[in-house]
C-alpha cells in the first residue's frame, strides 16, 4: 500500500514543482494546487495506513480499538482548509499582479527584487 501512495505522492510533487517553475502565471496556480494535494497525501501516508476503520467511537461504547490514526487526519483537515485559503488569495493576487504589470510572464516581474 505504502509503495502505491508513495508513487502517487512523488508524481504529484514532480508535476507540481514542474508547474511552479513555468513562466506562465496560470501554470503557477495549477502547480500550487498539485503541490497542495501532494502535501495532504504525504501527511496522510506518514501517519501509516494500518486500518480502514474511521476513528469514531460507536454509541454506547467508551473507546475503540484498531482504528485509523486521527491525529494526521486532524492535521490534514487544517491543511485542506488553509490550502483553499492560499489558493483563493493567490488567485486574486495574481489577477491584480497581471493587471498592474500587464504581463502573464513571471520572468518579466523581476523588478520588485532589483
Amino acid at each position: 500500500m505504502e509503495l502505491l501512495l508513495a508513487v502517487v505522492i512523488g508524481v504529484l510533487y514532480a508535476t507540481g514543482i514542474y508547474m511552479i517553475m513555468r513562466r506562465s502565471i496560470m501554470k503557477l496556480i495549477i502547480g500550487i494546487g498539485l503541490l497542495a494535494h501532494g502535501a495532504d497525501l504525504l501527511i496522510f501516508t506518514l501517519g501509516r495506513i494500518e486500518s480502514t476503520k474511521p476513528p469514531i467511537i460507536a454509541a454506547g461504547e467508551e473507546s475503540i480499538t484498531n482504528y485509523a490514526d486521527p491525529v494526521p487526519q486532524a492535521l490534514i483537515l487544517t491543511a485542506i482548509v488553509i490550502g483553499f485559503g492560499v489558493m483563493a488569495f493567490a488567485l486574486v493576487l495574481f489577477r491584480e499582479t497581471v493587471r498592474v504589470s500587464d504581463t502573464g510572464d513571471v520572468q518579466e516581474m523581476r523588478l520588485s527584487d532589483r
Binding site: 508513495a6 514532480a14 506518514l46
Partner: peptide
C-alpha cells in the same frame, strides 16, 4: 522536478 518527486517517494518509503 522528477528528481524531487523521486526524493519524495523515497522519503515516504
Amino acid at each position: 522536478a522528477v528528481a524531487a518527486g523521486l526524493l519524495m517517494t523515497l522519503f515516504v518509503l
